[in-house]
Structure formats: structure tokens, C-alpha cells
Write a protein that binds this DNA or RNA. Structure first.
Length: 199
DNA sequence: GAAATTTGACCATA
DNA sequence: TATGGTCAAATTTC
């Protein structure tokens, strides 16, 4: 169903705790957690923090793969209409056709056990990220914005970038740190295809 | 004081 | 009947 549902697999970051999956640049608010029978790990349900302000109905489900505990399966449902901006920018439908296609590919068996999934086209959220990531061609993808919970607890796992512009500078630093840390693992590279920067 | 996270319960669908 | 998903209330942190 290409109704805006995107399934992506992202390796757990080694930035302190692998309890939290890489942030995708949006502010998510956890609204529930459920233990899945077929999974040893519970599934977390997130909703866009700007839902109240922008009516953004974007949601995502994060679940750790039973086969790869260090890999998270993030299922995005719906599209963002907030773009994490101070103003409600309306983003047209994010080519659901392409999205629904890649999810099927993601359903494929594990990507090798090291988090080499990819195959999906990070256009849903990442495409919007590029808007505020302009100037950072390397950051064309999910970004982790550990403002206060990066080295503390699993709480505040989502960056509290109020608007996204405030983190513009932090993004570069965070991204740089992340890419440097992940440069040996190519995990990030696996998630964020460098091809995105060629757009 | 406000916002977010956590846990439990309830509802809907298969 | 069982599982998944969502909502609400309480608690914790900033």
C-alpha cells in the first residue's frame, strides 16, 4: 500500500546508547510502546511533535530487529506537513509510489547483520531534511540531534530542535561527529546514500 | 511550569 | 480470542 508507509532499517548508533535509533531530523514524541510477539524487543510508537501545531499526522514505529538487535526497523506512516520549521510549510505528497516500492524491498532478509540494509529511497523525511541541511551536502539524510539526552538516558531521544533552524549549526557538528564515528562502519553511509547529495 | 516519556488500559481488526 | 495500535494519566527532566 503506497499510502505513505515507508519501512527503513537503521543501525543503532554507537553514540552512547543503542536504545535510540538515529533521529531523522524530525521531532518525534513517543506515545506508546507495545511488546510484539514475534519480536523479543518492544515496538515504540512515535508521532510528530508538531501534530498539535501543524496537524502533522506523520507517525513512525521503531522496533529493534530480533535478528539484529543493533538494527532498528523504522516504519514511517504518513507524511510530514511541518518540515520542522517555525512556519507550517505544506509539503506535497512525497511520491508514495516510490515509497511503497522500497518497503517491499526492505522486507527482504537482513542486510548482512551489520546494518547494511538500505535499498530504500530516503525521500520521505530526508528529502525535507535537505531543505535545512543545505550547505551540508554530506548531511543528506537522517540526523541525530542529541540535545540533552544523548549521553544521559533514553529520554529526550528526539532532538528538541524547535524549528530546525536553531540546530543548523549543531547539525553540522553532530553530523560531522557522526560521520567520523561511522566512517569505519559505513553504517551511516548505508543509510544515507551519498547519491542523495547529487540531487 | 511545560514538555516529553513511561506504563497501563481500552478499542479495533484479523 | 489474540495482537496491534492509540489514548490517557502519572512521573520525570529541563
Amino acid at each position: 500500500m503506497d499510502d505513505g508507509t515507508v519501512t527503513r532499517r537503521v543501525p543503532a548508533l554507537r553514540t552512547g546508547n543503542m536504545e535510540m535509533p538515529p533521529d531523522d531530523g524530525y521531532t518525534w514524541r513517543k506515545y506508546g510502546q507495545k511488546d510484539i510477539l514475534n519480536s523479543r524487543f518492544p515496538r515504540s510508537y512515535y508521532r510528530c511533535t508538531h501534530r498539535s501545531y501543524y496537524g502533522c499526522e506523520a507517525k513512525k514505529k521503531v522496533q529493534r530487529l530480533d535478528d539484529d538487535p543493533n538494527t532498528f526497523e523504522v516504519i514511517y506512516c504518513g507524511t510530514h506537513t511541518c518540515q520542522t520549521s517555525p512556519t507550517p510549510i505544506l509539503i506535497p505528497t512525497l511520491v508514495p509510489s516510490a515509497i511503497g516500492n522500497n518497503m517491499n524491498d526492505n522486507d527482504n532478509d537482513d542486510g548482512g547483520g551489520g546494518g547494511h540494509q538500505q535499498g530504500a529511497s530516503p525521500q520521505s523525511a530526508s528529502i525535507q531534511l535537505r531543505n535545512w541541511l543545505e550547505g551540508n551536502p554530506r548531511n543528506t539524510g537522517t540526523l541525530l540531534i542529541p540535545r540533552s539526552g544523548a549521553g544521559g538516558s533514553t529520554s529526550r531521544q528526539v532532538g528538541q530542535q524547535q524549528g530546525g533552524r536553531d540546530i543548523d549549526g549543531s547539525v553540522a557538528e553532530l553530523a560531522d561527529a557522526m560521520f567520523n564515528s561511522a566512517s569505519s562502519g559505513s553504517s551511516m553511509d548505508a543509510i544515507f546514500s551519498p547519491r542523495q547529495g547529487s540531487l
